[in-house]
Design a binder for these strands. Sequence first.
RNA 1: GCCGAAGUGGCGGAACCGGCAGACGCGACGGUCUCAAACACCGUUGAGGGCAACCUCGUGUGGGUUCGAGUCCCACCUUCGGCACCA
Length: 824
Amino acid sequence: MATDPRTETDRYRPEAIERRWQQRWEADRLHRTPDRVEGRPNRYHLTMFPYTSGDLHVGHWFAMAPSDTLARYFRMRGHNVLFPFGFDAFGLPAENAAIKGGAHPKDWTDANIVRMREQLKGTGAMFDWEREVNTSAPDYYRWTQWWFNQFFKRDLAYRRRAPANFCPSCNTTLANEQVVNGRCERCDTPVEQRDMEQWFFRITNYAEELLANESLEWPEHVKLMQRNWIGRSEGAEAAFALERPAPDGTAEIRVFTTRPDTLHGVTFMVLAPEHALVEQITTEPQRAAVRAYVEQARRATEIERQSTERPKTGVFTGASCVNHLTGERVPIWIADYALATYGTGAVMAVPAHDQRDFEFAQQFGLPVKVVVAPEGWNGEPLTEAYVEPGTLVNSLAFDGQPSENGKRTITAHLQQRGWGGPRVQYRLRDWLISRQRYWGAPIPVVYCDRCGTVLVPDDQLPVELPYDVEFLPTGQSPLSLSESFVQTICPDCEGPARRETDTMDTFMCSSWYYMRYADPANAAAAVGEAAAKTWLPVDQYTGGSEHAVMHLLYSRFFYKVARDMGLVPGDEPFTRYYSQGQILGPDGRRMSKSRGNVVAPDAQVAQWGADTFRAYLMFLGPWDQGGPYDVEGIVGVHRWLNRVWNAVTDPPALRALPDAGETRELRRLVHETGLRVTRDLEGFQFNTMIAALMELTNHLQRLRDAGEADEAAWREAVERLVLMLAPPCPHVAEELWERVGGAYSVHQQAWPAFDETQARRATVQIAVQVNGRVRGHVEVAADADEAAARAAAEADPRVQERISGRQVARVVYVPGRLLNIVVQ
RNA sequence: GCCGAAGUGGCGGAACCGGCAGACGCGACGGUCUCAAACACCGUUGAGGGCAACCUCGUGUGGGUUCGAGUCCCACCUUCGGCACCA
């Protein structure tokens, strides 16, 4: 039994107030956001929607709490804030759960959404649930399919047979972005290359514009990651004449190089094993060896192929080509260090000036021809490739030029003679969107013997995902096993046709969901024109930096296409983006069931309440850094809210006191705190925002202990404290607001004004240093000049002792901070 | 290997523009209330020395600039994140 003299109902008990206010807010539709509110400018805040994994975890709270706090703050600042939420509901885990003997993916997903929505309501976040989206609902994916059609019509979608990243465990192809260190991003299985007919989006058409991200108000490291991912390289394309044209008539091999200055140093060519010419140019004596090598390269996983430590391997094709610049005969090899998917899939090898080519040349005894002379080089053989700039040698007419200059002149020469010319190459590949899985949006295409590839017309969408399907993964699309799905009629000729059976990468669904929130019920468009103008682009986006490439890049691509279609305003979907860090288990490692370090949010909420949990997640440390979740620390935040509660509900004796001393200090501190909290909120410094509120609370606590306070100053302090508490801790703020007699709802109040001049102190303590070391402190007027400060300082006996009898060489005075007396 | 971020008490962290290092909180220690506790409350808490007032040391390491450096410069070490045979 509590020994607190006050009754149970007077104590802070979150479980007694949180649910009640959540119900009241929902009943009052307090979080509904109309498209227009007179006198309130619109503002769109968004936190990344979650995958429907089943239960909310701490990471979701960590992402959501500060984001909600910020949205609430801007609402108090007078904005009509849209802060929607929804579910990224397509994807593999639903299917895998079903395969393990659970429910159908749709039922599993729908049940998870019901559970997660309830848990999310328990966070107290101001989500407008009337705008919820679910990417697996037909009235959503209908529009995902519609986007596919628009991309196709704009020649931004194409199908081709190409080597694709394939995860043998997930039994599906993956986009380049979903391969991490040669492994599947989702299940960590080594990825293989398979030749398959796949749909691609021409994201590379937008490479240059996607690269130009400097002006975005995003974290620099995220923008940098995107630029590195896109990987722009300037160089030249050069043609080498085949000694014997290929059977299909191809007469040359084209290569991309960033070192056109070294063109005279080419001593062999390297084709990727998958290069189209390999089969054609290989000579009979070499055929068996080449076939064996190609076969082995095909089987190798990406990890095996990507290992840079592995010695270089390759096979001579027996064929040769001619270097136009020198007339030299150049043997053509194949090697797996040449990538089929970059540049032309062929490399001109200059072993003297490229380390990879050098290693290959060493391995197979190929010649090394120096064409850029290192400083002081006298012709001795190189022990490694010389990659620095230098002077061109062995380069005929170009001898003597600086190599940097040679890049330009040799490229110009190529162009002039029709052998190539300048070229820009990107590391970014086109986006592979086909997935051989069930639980995704079907690609809305049919294949007709007569008409070929035909889009399902927009007005016939959605192509519905059949419920009754065998979705065991076989490497084939599950939909291909459903005859009733596959058999269809051609929209053009009405003859028999077969449906495409692959589904779309779920990153398609999430590339436009933020648009749908603006107009979630529109049955006639993905997003209506007026709604798009009203809300887009998103003013403030937040989410994990694991999406720096992938989701954030794909969304930018989508938005630019939508802009080109005239659908959305501006060029970028997310004006401002801030990335939070990752919350780790108490042991500092990623939370996972297998490690047994998972903290269950429901248990934290049950023990401490949602407000405490929210505030603690913000208080832990800088939001962008994340870090371990320390189960011990949360009690500190709970104690703080307790002190706030006690200060509000059980104040000291209140009477009118003179506006001096404690009273004046209280007023001043409230303004100082308000300024700090405002600045911290706008700068995403949630940890120091909470700390500032704690300091103000501790001050109120001291006045409470002292037994009395000025009534007006106290009331103002408490009211402002509760208002500032409203964004981070919405429930307790609402309860206390009611108790101080405020009008419902605290969340519809204006953010209080805080004033620099009122936050200023009349007198300040400054440090007095002698030769840079603190020797005392003195109290001076805040606006004291140097002479006054010095006089006060010299009155201090400790200072006096250290400067008496010595020559003062210099005095440095920093008003409000310190006075440094430098003596000889 | 390349690119980026960061190293501060026992722990999480704070410190605006170069100006009193360690705000705020956890833990620990001491105390209050209690049969006992606690998600209650009060106090102390960087290290070393001193009876004390005080003194010395201290922000990854070594150097430098400055009246003054956690903050700026140079070199290095460590950790984390990204990329990685991209021609």
